[in-house]
């Protein structure tokens, strides 16, 4: 039983899109979510293949704020976030994913968490590290990355397949 096979998302229901453009009006990032749908669907036509190429290589794909408003307003219940994520994966296969995601994964492999220590500022202008501030406020320290090797290997394996 392979996890990666099971989480594959079916994009069949995207076809229900009747291009009402409601999703465009609600997108706070100014994207055209239905364009991603049509770009995906149009790949069956060799003449439209370059539209798909354009979309996958276009950085606007990474400007989705994942607010899910488009999904919520879609009269045809088209899972627009699924198609955006699908296209992001396709872009990632070509090495086009922003570096930030890699950094986060690296962090997790090292510490279980996406972020390490940060600078915390107070309204009075005092600066603290995360550790200092947590200690000052009586919060427990950040979790220790104990016995992380197996976890790290597992992530590496899963990352390579998506």
């Amino acid at each position: 039983m392979v996890l990666e096979k099971l989480v594959e998302v079916s994009l069949e229901t995207l076809r229900a899109c009747y291009t009402c453009f409601k999703c465009i009006g609600v997108c706070p990032a100014g994207l055209r979510p239905n364009l991603f749908v049509k770009a995906y669907l149009s790949t069956v036509f060799r003449e439209l293949r370059d539209v798909y190429e354009e979309i996958v290589t276009n950085s606007s794909l990474w400007s989705c704020a994942k607010c899910l408003k488009c999904v919520e307003v879609c009269p045809q219940k088209v899972p627009l976030n699924d198609v955006i994520e699908y296209l992001q994966r396709e872009a990632a296969k070509r090495g086009l994913a922003p570096r930030a995601y890699q950094d986060m994964v690296e962090n997790i492999m090292g510490t279980f968490l996406a972020f390490g220590s940060q600078t915390i500022v107070s309204r009075d202008g005092d600066f603290y590290t995360t550790g200092e501030a947590r200690e000052l406020l009586g919060l427990t320290p950040l979790p220790e990355p104990n016995k992380i090797e197996k976890f790290r290997e597992r992530l590496k394996g899963l990352r390579s397949i998506g």
Binding site: E12, R15, A16, Y18, L41, F45, Q76
Partner: peptide, 26 residues
């Protein structure tokens, strides 16, 4: 535009849209 105002017409429209290999250019 697709005018599907009859009884069960809109449902039929959706059914056809969902067929793989059917692409509607608006």
């Amino acid at each position: 535009e697709i005018r599907a105002s009859g009884k069960n017409f809109e449902e039929f429209y959706r059914r056809i849209r969902l067929l793989p290999g059917v692409y509607i250019v608006k």
